[in-house]
Design a protein around this nucleic acid. Structure first.
Lengths: 205, 205
DNA sequence: TGTACATCAGTGAACGCGCGTTCACTGATGTAC
DNA sequence: TGTACATCAGTGAACGCGCGTTCACTGATGTAC
């Protein structure tokens, strides 16, 4: 009887039921590990800033195994960006009662500036995304929409045009300000950019 | 007599006075051509997006000659960024009576969005600059300072702290907004970002 | 003035290197019976 | 239950390719006298 079920199942789900080396759970954990490493490193080093061999090594694997998980490097990049956007937004939503002011302050500070790898995907990659494959740009477009909705939801009358407009200018200002703060080599100018930008965004509601 | 002058000069300026194949004018024209091509292409394709062979080809030369003009690729990048910043600012200053409003409108439109190669260096390269060599970042820092002064000079009381603060938030907002407009693949969202950002920056003076 | 010479901008092949991708292989695992 | 077998995640060497850089060479030019 158990055999009959197995046989039927092996027709419907041949991969699952006809002799597996490692469990699916193990494989999807490995995949997750590759994606986590990649999501961090892409934000730190840019979309072309790190190679597959290094990424796999950091995930505890060798490079050959990569193609058991992803079709090619582009697919990895798209998936890793999805994860990166998601984890940033999840962290923002975690507090649940995170205010607009808290969002701006948690974005425009030295910790975020100095840790791009765990920060906002857009802030470190905007420029490169504009030149990326359309697959990648579509992932980004989806997530920009979601980020705009998240920001608008923190404002008075979240559904109003005013809230949407303020969300748009705020997202742009956040990304530009932290980008500038990372770009300049003078620490006091960098700090001035962070502080002034935060108070300008918050000062005029 | 002329010989005596030449002889003395040849000691002081050995390179100039002891047998030159091509004139200095010719060489510096070539250098200028390489820099112009590079300044455009870097903004279009990113700091690592184009190789020396292609750049030299576009300048009408072969790759081997490159090192007669620059010590290495890094030097080319730094010099090209200087040129790129300069030409952008020069164009902004050209009108002489360019207002703050005109600056914002000339920055946040589709022409600038779609032609990064002739546009603002910061808008296409901020992210990558944050990860670049310190030599490159110092060029950028100088030019960010100059851009901030240019923007402040268009505001009431240009020397006031208020003008400086507004210059900082404006530069960040411009860079972030056009970066977002280039990143998203949906044309109507892109246009919305440009239009809303411009009116938000100008709406609240 | 004329001629032998030195210079050096520019050529194009070659170099080593790192990259994404492919491939034959391994060995732990679950299945078949 | 025990054993032969099939699967496939992961290995690590090899592939072709494009890159920055080097190098011996060329030939137009200005200099020396």
């Amino acid at each position: 009887m158990a055999n009959a079920v197995t046989k039927i199942a092996s027709i419907i789900y041949p991969a699952r039921f006809s002799g597996m080396a490692r469990s699916q759970a193990e494989k999807s954990q490995t995949r997750k590990r590759i994606l986590e490493v990649t999501a961090r490193r892409l934000r730190e080093k840019g979309l072309d800033g790190i190679g597959l061999a290094d990424l796999m090594k950091e995930a505890g694997l060798t490079v050959g195994g990569f193609y058991k998980h992803f079709a090619d490097r582009d697919e990895l990049v798209s998936e890793a960006l999805k994860l990166g956007f998601g984890s940033w937004r999840r962290r923002q939503e975690k507090g649940e009662e995170l205010s607009f002011q808290e969002l701006v302050i948690s974005y425009l500070n030295e910790e975020h500036r100095d840790n791009a790898g765990s920060g906002c995907v857009l802030s470190s990659l905007v420029g490169e995304i504009g030149r990326a494959k359309s697959e990648t740009r579509e992932v980004v477009t989806d997530n920009v929409r979601k980020d705009l909705e998240l920001i608008a939801s923190l404002l008075p009358h979240p559904e109003s045009e005013e809230a949407r407009n303020k969300a748009i200018i705020t997202l742009g200002a956040l990304i530009g300000a932290i980008g500038l703060a990372r770009a300049v080599s003078d620490p006091s100018l960098s700090q001035e950019i962070l502080q002034v930008s935060a108070s300008q965004i918050l000062g005029k509601s």
